[in-house]
Amino acid sequence: MKKIIRVTTMPGSINSLLKGQLGFMSQHYNILAVSSNEGGRLKSIGEEEGIPTYAVEMTRKITPIRDLAATYSLYKLFKKEKPFIVHTHTPKAGIAGMLAAKLAKVPHRLHTVAGLPLLESKGLKRKLLDIVEKCTYNCSTIVLPNSFGLKQIIIDLKFTNQSKLKVIGNGSSNGINVEHFNPETISESQKEKLRLKFGIQPNDFVFIFVGRIVGDKGINELIKAFNSLNKEYSTIKLLLLGHKESHLDPISKKSLKVLKENKNIIELGFQTDIRPYLSISNVLTFPSYREGFPNAVLQACAMQVPCIASNINGCNEIIKNEINGIIIPPKDTKSLKNAMAFCLNNPLKVKEMSLLSRNTITDLYSQDIVWKELLSLYKTLEE
């Protein structure tokens, strides 16, 4: 079988953003997963997928010397392994992997774009990130934005030729395992235990956020909107699932103060299985500033949880306003609060949206669709 090397900056991306996909592809190709060995997790993640792994240290920050060392390590690996495809994910793995693959004369160099962090950057940092992004695309033979909106942004920014760009299926990097993310997988007794654990009463309305607890996910706006709404409605809760990244994009001091003081905001940290928490929630609140194709929104919809989401690429491709959720302007606390209040005051509409949410995912974003389409692309490159 031909060899494909898949590269991510951090091993967690294999386990979360691409879960199951590399194992599926290993039925058709020799797959080697390359990533940092953060926390010694790379080997165990490879064992879960049933594929070999190789560690190359990379960072998510701008670290020129370490980045050059990573690029050289990847170059040596590619020269030795001679893959016919190198496929990268995440910005740092993208620039290091695509440059190394081009230098090593790998014939097919694919890079998946699952979001553009540079969109929230300014000044010299933005200029530098623009250059890096263009370089990544220049070294690639195919660029795979994971949403149609993201594809258009790349075209508008003139980062690469339109002919290089392709969206897999209807969008998403990995699709959704609709059997796993199914409301029927969580029993009533499980739900009841969680409600008791967190003091959620039968008449409480539960909002939930799933993702990194950082500024550009709209967390400051969410905390402010909820805190204000909570003064008017006492029977509401907000579950926050995800880890803080204080070293990269910290939330404001005001938000941290509210988190300490408001007992109706329940911080749960990172959770490997978010389904039980979605199952006790009424609405996902996802006021992100930028996305590629948000897994949290896909997962919530699959669990029949409607979403309040920002009017940005990815989110507005999954959520249709007042059909399976509500679309709001990004960075707009007032609109977010109003949408949350609308959900509180219109339970029948929320129920209607929840019933339509899952159909959207099963029809358009099932994992089978995404995996088979990507496999088909790989097959065409063999010719």
Rank of each mutant, 00 (worst) to 15 (best):
S35N: 06
S36G: 09
N37L: 10
E38S: 14
E38G: 00
G39E: 13
G40P: 10
L42I: 01
K43T: 13
S44F: 06
I45Y: 07
G46I: 10
G46L: 06
E48R: 09
E49V: 04
G50K: 06
I51W: 04
I51Y: 00
P52R: 06
P52E: 09
Y54A: 06
A55F: 01
V56T: 01
E57N: 13
T59W: 09
R60T: 11
R60P: 02
I65W: 12
R66F: 08
R66H: 13
R66D: 08
D67E: 15
D67H: 06
A69S: 10
A70V: 00
A70P: 00
T71A: 15
T71S: 15
T71H: 01
S73M: 07
S73G: 00
L77H: 04
K79E: 12
K80P: 03
K80I: 01
E81F: 05
K82L: 10
K82D: 08
I85H: 07
V86M: 03
H87V: 06
T90I: 07
P91Q: 10
A96N: 13
G97A: 12
M98E: 02
A100G: 05
A101F: 13
K102P: 01
L103N: 03
A104Q: 07
A104F: 08
A104N: 10
K105W: 02
V106T: 12
H108K: 12
H108W: 08
R109M: 00
R109D: 01
L110W: 07
H111K: 01
A114H: 15
A114E: 10
G115A: 11
L116T: 09
L118K: 12
L119W: 02
L119H: 08
E120H: 05
E120L: 10
E120C: 13
E120Y: 04
S121Y: 11
S121W: 03
G123T: 02
R126Y: 14
R126Q: 15
R126G: 04
K127A: 13
L129Y: 13
D130V: 14
D130W: 09
I131L: 14
I131T: 14
V132D: 07
K134I: 09
C135V: 14
C135P: 00
C135A: 15
C135Y: 09
Y137A: 12
Y137F: 15
C139W: 11
I142F: 11
S147D: 07
S147Y: 03
S147G: 12
S147R: 06
G149N: 05
G149F: 09
L150Q: 03
K151S: 10
K151H: 02
Q152F: 05
I153S: 05
I153Y: 02
I154Q: 05
I154P: 02
D156F: 03
L157Y: 14
K158F: 06
F159V: 10
F159T: 04
T160V: 13
Q162E: 15
S163H: 09
K164D: 05
K166L: 15
V167H: 10
